[in-house]
């Protein structure tokens, strides 16, 4: 690589980068990119990966209590997908020079965040449905535009993830639908879950646009394609008729159709709660991180054993 052409001046490389972005082409791992672009992507992809693996916990909480074998299989497969999606995303971050070990270290020491939605508890079986319908629904609304993100490996991981997640939201909706048509107790369970998960789901789109300083740069770089508020509105518009079809109500008195805007108006999100949960004061912040750290620490001897075995048997085919 030490040929004369690699002495191409920085400015020309920057122009090349801008041209690639402007032409809606993808940036690939070994391309030159501005440090801030790289840092923004690493932060965002890592946060996304962390959210996938921490997000396994609230749902895994119900695997051993799933009330039918069909539901149990679905839930195991879904939680498994989340581990898989974490792996795809750590892989994408790795192409930017951030190793998984380093990113996990930052998660475990609290220097990296994950989506604060997972700091809410899953108290009943209906929560599994509400997570699928609302939390995965919000995630998909966020993620579909990321399939066109300017960074190639991230966009490709998101294509795969979106394809696999299509069943996640549907199974949640189906689960709630079964409860809503079930006994009085099941129906009450479903409504209670929707009441608790609705507002945190709206928070998943992030702070309002006027309080989201990074949005403009991310949109210029085509990492992000829509603002937080646009996506939040899109999500509300999608959910209202779906809630009606379930026969469940969304816990917002201000929800009404706005003929002029062609959108549903909705009430104010409690951003104080959002900031508090993000700052670590949510009901499950400690618990989630503890479990994650414990799994990692208790797994150390296993990872070390496999590495030691590989060193002893370099051919990798001892059998």
């Amino acid at each position: 690589m030490g040929t004369a052409v690699s002495a191409e001046p920085e400015r020309a490389r920057a122009e090349d980068f801008e041209r690639t972005i402007a032409a809606d082409e993808r940036i690939e791992p070994r391309d030159w990119m501005p440090d801030a672009y790289r840092a923004t992507l690493i932060r965002q992809i890592a946060q996304h990966a962390h959210s996938e693996i921490i997000g396994m916990q609230p749902e895994a909480n119900w695997i051993t209590r799933a009330p039918s074998l069909r539901r149990k299989a679905i839930l195991i497969a879904k939680v498994q997908d989340e581990a898989g999606h974490g792996l795809y995303l750590y892989g994408a971050a790795e192409t930017l020079g951030a190793s998984r070990a380093e990113l996990l270290g930052k998660l475990h020491t609290g220097r990296h965040k994950y989506s604060s939605i997972f700091n809410y508890p899953t108290l009943t079986w209906a929560d599994v449905g509400a997570i699928g319908w609302l939390v995965d629904g919000a995630a998909i609304t966020n993620q579909v535009p990321l399939c066109r993100c300017s960074y190639g490996p991230y966009a490709r991981a998101m294509v795969r993830i979106c394809k696999e997640e299509s069943f996640h939201q549907r199974q949640g909706y189906e689960l709630l639908h079964a409860l809503a048509r079930g006994t009085g107790a099941q129906r009450a369970m479903a409504q209670d879950a929707v009441d608790r998960w609705w507002w945190p789901s709206l928070m998943m789109f992030g702070p309002p646009d006027d309080a989201s300083p990074r949005t403009a740069q991310s949109m210029a770089w085509k990492i992000k394609r829509h603002t937080n508020d646009e996506l939040r509105q899109r999500f509300v518009d999608i959910c209202v008729p779906q809630a009606e079809a379930l026969g469940l109500t969304l816990p917002d008195r201000d929800l009404r159709w706005n003929e002029e805007r062609g959108h549903w108006d909705f009430g104010a999100v409690d951003w104080d709660e959002f900031r508090a949960v993000l700052a670590g004061e949510g009901p499950c912040n400690e618990q989630r991180l503890d479990q994650r750290r414990r799994a990692h620490e208790e797994g150390a001897w296993v990872r070390e054993a496999a590495a030691a075995y590989a060193a002893k048997h370099p051919a990798g085919a001892a059998r």
Partner: peptide, 11 residues
């Protein structure tokens, strides 16, 4: 933080 991952190469 105990290690391990760092020793597992990427494929």
């Amino acid at each position: 933080m105990s290690g391990g991952d760092a020793d597992w190469p990427l494929w």
